[in-house]
């Protein structure tokens, strides 16, 4: 562990380098996906805050909305890791096209249940 006094500065530099590395190493396609992921994350946080601060009634509607964002988030994240060229040898049997088809199917099933659950 780093000593406490120097931790904040180191953190900021670390995050800066991370941001730089990310910008340099990531293709535009993946950045696009990441933007969507970021949006979903914000949406999820807003819903969660609403649930805690205002009301969780009706609970099934909250759950449906929240799990649609979470579900879409993980499906998109899965798509991202499947199409990421770095992971090519991990996903031998999943081509990018197949990954997108999987993604579409998963999303359809997910939103079918979300729609059913909204009540």
């Amino acid at each position: 562990m780093a000593p406490k006094s120097s931790a904040p500065t180191q953190q900021t530099t670390a995050i800066q380098t991370l941001w730089k590395a990310y910008n340099e190493q990531t293709s535009d396609r993946l950045k696009f996906i990441d933007a969507f992921l970021f949006f979903l994350m914000l949406s999820g946080i807003v819903q969660f805050l609403y649930c805690i601060l205002v009301t969780n009634f009706p609970f099934n509607a909250f759950l449906a909305g929240f799990s649609s964002t979470v579900g879409q988030f993980v499906l998109t994240a899965s798509l991202r890791s499947q199409v990421n060229p770095e992971n090519k040898n991990e996903f031998k049997e999943v081509s990018p096209e197949r990954a997108f088809a999987d993604f579409a199917l998963g999303s359809i099933v997910l939103h079918f249940f979300v729609y059913n659950f909204l009540g």
């Binding site: 609970f59 099934n60 759950l63 449906a64 799990s67 979470v70 579900g71 993980v74 499906l75 994240a77 899965s78 890791s81 499947q82 990421n84 992971n87 991990e90 996903f91 998963g106 099933v109 997910l110 249940f113 979300v114 059913n116 659950f117």
Partner: peptide
Amino acid sequence: FSSRLYVGYSSWYAIGTLASMQVPFVGF
């Protein structure tokens, strides 16, 4: 840990849990 594990588990859990709540006896 591998990305395959992430993909498999996340897609199962996110959809499966939401689906399981559709059964009235299971509910929330």
